[in-house]
Simulated assay, not measured.
Amino acid sequence: MPLFYKEIKLEYDYRVNLFVENEVVVETKTTKGINDLHLTQTLTYLKLLNKEVGLILNFNVTSLKK
């Protein structure tokens, strides 16, 4: 997703892992645990896209029920 500031496109883009039905931001991780950085990243995407629903999925577990 390109990033603009005052109609100027910045050099760096943000990369959302999945954006479902133009409504849900999904961030996928494979890490020991979800930390504040992951939460901040997802909240930033939600704010930039003006959306309210986001999921952080961590695949580094023995069962996704955890």
Rank of each mutant, 00 (worst) to 15 (best):
M1D: 09
M1R: 10
P2M: 12
F4D: 10
Y5H: 13
Y5E: 09
Y5I: 11
K6N: 14
E7N: 15
K9I: 10
L10G: 14
E11F: 11
E11I: 12
E11G: 08
D13H: 07
D13R: 09
R15G: 10
F19R: 01
V20L: 15
V20D: 08
N22C: 02
V24R: 01
V26E: 00
V26G: 01
E27T: 02
T28F: 11
K29I: 09
G33Q: 09
G33C: 06
G33F: 07
N35T: 13
N35D: 15
D36I: 05
D36A: 06
D36E: 15
L37E: 12
H38V: 05
T40M: 09
T42Q: 05
T42A: 14
T42K: 02
L43Q: 08
L43F: 10
T44I: 14
T44K: 08
T44P: 05
T44A: 13
Y45D: 00
L48R: 03
N50I: 06
E52S: 13
E52I: 08
V53K: 04
G54V: 04
G54D: 06
G54L: 04
L55F: 15
L55N: 06
L57G: 04
N58D: 04
N60F: 12
T62R: 10
K66F: 07
K66M: 06
